[in-house]
Computed example of a mutant assay.
Amino acid sequence: MTVTEAELTAHAQDITDQPDGPGKRIGKKGELTIITPLTPEGGKIFRERQADIQAKAGYWEPIVGTVDNFRILLFDNDTRMLITLVYDGDFLPYLADIGRAHPWLDEIFGDIVEGYNGYNDPGTPELVISRSYSADLYFHATPDKTVHDVKRMSRLSDALSEVLDAAN
């Protein structure tokens, strides 16, 4: 099978920089990568809290409402943290949105991330920006669908399946 260059690039996405902060943007989706040093005991503390933090994700992320996905990885012998995010919209509104989950964020990052003094600390936005990186390559399968759109479509699909199952 021979594929032409035009076929390979026919679905190329328009990738731009976020207009108001770090990260890239495709459609309605922004991305952000943060690499940050941990406090001397940060890795140990995070590992102790990890199960609790994970268990609470399903509560806090819907409250934020704009998080498509969120991942954390400890590396370099638990001395640094990699945080990757995909979210709806621009950077500054997202930074405000995550404030609705500030107790959870403080549990995740407090006493763990070097220089983090709590979400409500006036220096937190600059700390986030100073440790942020834009992706060199970024793809999103549904760049024009928000988290709200996807949840609505999922509910519609479930309802339709229920109706079709009842008709059988």
Rank of each mutant, 00 (worst) to 15 (best):
T33F: 14
I34L: 15
I34N: 14
T36L: 15
P37G: 05
L38W: 13
L38A: 13
T39D: 12
T39M: 10
P40D: 04
E41T: 14
E41Y: 07
G43S: 07
G43R: 07
K44A: 15
K44L: 15
I45D: 06
F46M: 08
E48D: 14
E48L: 11
E48Q: 13
Q50E: 15
A51S: 11
I53Y: 06
A55V: 01
K56F: 10
A57F: 13
A57P: 02
A57I: 12
E61K: 11
E61A: 10
P62S: 11
I63H: 02
I63A: 03
V64R: 07
V64Y: 10
G65K: 04
G65R: 03
G65C: 13
T66N: 08
T66A: 05
T66E: 04
V67Y: 03
D68S: 06
D68L: 07
N69P: 01
I72P: 00
I72W: 12
I72H: 11
L73N: 11
D76H: 06
N77G: 15
D78P: 04
T79A: 03
R80I: 00
M81A: 12
M81I: 11
L82Q: 03
L82Y: 08
I83V: 15
T84S: 14
T84W: 10
L85P: 04
V86K: 13
Y87T: 03
Y87E: 05
G89S: 09
D90C: 01
D90A: 08
D90H: 04
L92T: 08
Y94F: 15
A96N: 01
D97S: 13
I98F: 10
G99K: 09
R100H: 09
R100V: 00
A101N: 09
H102E: 06
P103K: 02
W104S: 06
L105Y: 12
D106P: 01
E107V: 00
I108R: 06
F109Y: 09
G110S: 11
D111Y: 08
I112Q: 15
V113Q: 07
V113T: 11
E114C: 09
N117E: 12
N117I: 00
Y119N: 11
Y119H: 13
D121M: 04
P122C: 09
P122R: 06
G123K: 14
T124H: 14
P125T: 06
P125R: 07
E126Q: 15
E126V: 03
L127C: 02
L127R: 04
L127F: 02
V128Q: 01
I129D: 01
I129H: 00
R131Y: 10
S132F: 10
A135V: 05
D136H: 06
D136Y: 05
Y138F: 14
A141W: 07
P143Y: 05
D144P: 10
K145W: 15
H148F: 14
H148D: 12
H148N: 09
D149E: 06
K151Y: 11
K151R: 12
K151C: 04
R152K: 13
R152Q: 12
M153V: 00
S154N: 09
R155V: 01
L156M: 09
S157K: 03
D158T: 02
A159M: 00
L160W: 04
S161E: 05
S161T: 03
S161Q: 05
E162L: 01
V163T: 01
L164D: 01
D165W: 02
A166E: 02
